[in-house]
């Protein structure tokens, strides 16, 4: 089952399915490595919940919820 990246729990390994964002935002996410069929893992959440840091391709990238909502993922264990 696909969920949005913002819904995935911390330390849950996910695989990106697709990104539903305007093209400019989508290209920027590709630059950071957020591409279909790539692993991503939510690592840390900020105290006001809006932003989380994700481990992708060995780098920590922080995304606001509005952005991670647009990334569909499936959990790796499924």
């Amino acid at each position: 089952m696909n969920i949005s990246l913002s819904e995935a729990g911390l330390n849950e390994r996910c695989i990106i399915e697709k990104i539903d964002a305007p093209i400019e935002e989508k290209l920027r996410l590709y630059d950071f490595g957020f591409m279909p069929e790539r692993f991503v893992m939510p690592m840390y959440a900020s105290f006001l919940k809006g932003i989380r840091a994700y481990m992708i391709k060995g780098t920590l990238i922080a995304l606001r919820q509005e952005c991670s909502d647009k990334i569909s993922v499936r959990l790796c264990d499924e």
Partner: peptide, 9 residues
Amino acid sequence: EVSSFVLEL
């Protein structure tokens, strides 16, 4: 509107 925000740590 607030813009999207991506930050590399």
